[in-house]
């Protein structure tokens, strides 16, 4: 029934490992975009201008409520229709970056809202300006409660990168599909892909937990 072939597994392992680097790069780049754009989404929802707030809110809701894989297709195929050609990498990074930006904006928002009102009042009483209030007092306190969510989405974006294979980004899943269609050996290929994901995401999740605990201590928020 099962004919697992070690020789085949070792033969394709280097290709899979190389593709893993692409996967990690895609996750890293996408997350970088998401961190910045997410902040823009979050701050746009805190402005005094009702229209800006409403547009930001609805955009976040729309992006969060629709499938990432469809958004990847949308970005990849729609821009050329208007004469802008995007490489698979560019289209993929825009789509996945925006998708996770909408998640991260919610995390940021939750973090900012978790800072007690008394902290803002103390800043007023000390006459600190808006920028100083944000950067010295509010953000350092909003960050620790936001970290678990931020960490989850870092692991999350890593696990969603296989969707980029649908438009031909040469990450792990794309390479596995190529190997599968050349050799018709799916057992070793997809099993190893699964294991590679586990081997990276489980330690990463554990590492992030430890990092959160360290930050809380470093910020003096726990004993």
């Amino acid at each position: 029934m099962l004919d697992w072939r070690w020789d085949f597994a070792f033969e394709v392992l280097p290709r899979l490992l190389l593709a893993t680097l692409n996967t990690l790069m895609a996750a890293g780049l996408g997350y970088g975009i998401a961190l910045v754009v997410g902040l823009v989404f979050a701050l746009a929802q805190r402005t005094r201008y009702r229209l800006v707030t409403a547009i930001a809110r609805e955009s976040v809701e729309f992006i969060r409520s629709t499938p990432l894989v469809l958004q990847i297709f949308f970005v990849f195929y729609v821009f050329p229709q208007f004469g802008i050609r995007l490489s698979p990498w560019t289209a993929g990074m825009i789509a996945i970056g925006l998708h996770y930006a909408s998640y991260l904006s919610e995390v940021y928002r939750g973090g900012l809202e978790s800072v007690p009102r008394g902290q803002w009042e103390a800043c007023t009483a000390l006459n600190l300006g808006t920028a100083r209030t944000y950067f010295r007092i509010i953000v350092p306190q909003a960050l620790p409660p936001a970290l678990p969510g931020m960490g989850n989405y870092l692991v999350g974006i890593f696990k969603d990168t296989p969707m980029l294979s649908v438009i031909g980004v040469a990450e792990l899943m794309h390479t596995a599909n190529a190997i599968g269609s050349e050799s018709y050996r799916f057992l070793e290929t997809y099993t190893m892909v699964g294991l590679l994901f586990l081997l990276i995401s489980l330690p990463a999740a554990a590492g992030l937990r430890a990092f959160e605990a360290w930050v809380r201590r470093a910020f003096g928020l726990s004993r």
Binding site: K159, M173, Y190, G194, A205
Partner: peptide, 24 residues
């Protein structure tokens, strides 16, 4: 829980569809 949360849905889908038949 850790296995399904630690890997991608797409990987799981392909595995169930392409690899599970090899287990009969």
């Amino acid at each position: 829980i850790e296995f399904f949360r630690g890997t991608s849905l797409l990987v799981q889908l392909y595995w169930i569809f392409f690899v599970l038949p090899l287990f009969g």
